[in-house]
């Protein structure tokens, strides 16, 4: 079957994983609003107990959405590492309670954002964003281009990660891995070349009119 080459830390950027759970069927706007409210709650609720309760909410959402536990945890490894580092620093600086709160808050938001992404196909997300962006018409922004830009950006991230890896390998092969120019110049030039081809392809598909 298709080879999947994904760096683990693209994990939380995630992809839609099809299903028919209540969260898959929920309106996009509701899910985004819920995510925003959770973000607000994380900021407002103080203390380690509250933080753990909110993490439980996010984990429950992941369970309702039938996210495979193993894959979710694998995707979370880099975030867990960050959270652990953050916790150690905060423990040293401000004590255990702050350490738990800050690191757990981080996990809560990453898990919750991952659930929204995993249960929402990008085109429905787009429709919602397009509706939300409609008022921007008055300041000269076309909502369709905004929505298209969002989808295009999310689709381009893994491709650019791959480019970065290829460029890094090429630099390593020539013994240039500590030369930032050998890493950044080819990556950036290929990024521009790719954008220009994509622009022509969008025009060819009639998406510019």
């Amino acid at each position: 079957m298709s080879r999947r080459r994904r760096s683990p830390w693209i994990g939380p950027l995630g992809l839609y994983s099809p299903g028919s759970t209540p969260l898959h069927r929920a309106p996009v706007g509701a899910k985004l609003t819920a995510l925003a409210l959770l973000g607000l709650a994380v900021v407002l609720v103080r203390g380690p107990v509250g933080a753990l309760a909110l993490l439980a909410v996010a984990a429950a959402a992941a369970a309702v959405a039938r996210q495979p536990a193993r894959a979710t945890l694998t995707g979370l490894v880099p975030v867990l590492a960050t959270a652990a580092g953050l916790a150690a620093f905060q423990w040293w600086q401000q004590g255990l309670a702050a350490a738990i709160e800050v690191s757990v808050d981080l996990l809560t938001l990453v898990v919750a954002a991952g659930v929204v992404t995993a249960t929402t196909p990008a085109d429905r997300m787009l429709d919602a964003l397009e509706r939300a962006a409609r008022p921007l018409r008055h300041v000269g922004l076309r909502p369709e281009s905004f929505a298209l830009s969002v989808a295009l950006m999310l689709r381009t991230v893994p491709a650019l990660v791959q480019t970065a890896a290829e460029v890094r390998d090429a630099a390593r092969a020539r013994g240039l891995e500590r030369n930032p120019r050998a890493l950044l110049v080819p990556a950036a030039v290929r990024t521009v070349a790719r954008a220009r081809t994509t622009g022509a392809a969008l025009a060819a598909r009639g998406l510019g009119e």
Binding site: S145, L148, S149, V150, L152, M153, L154, T156, V157, A159, L160, A188, T191, V192, R194, A195, R196, T198, G199, A200, L202, A203, L207, G208
Partner: peptide, 14 residues
């Protein structure tokens, strides 16, 4: 215009 959209989106990804 489509090249502008592609450049903006690709650089956001970058």
């Amino acid at each position: 215009t489509t090249t502008d959209v592609a450049l903006v989106a690709t650089f956001a990804a970058f």
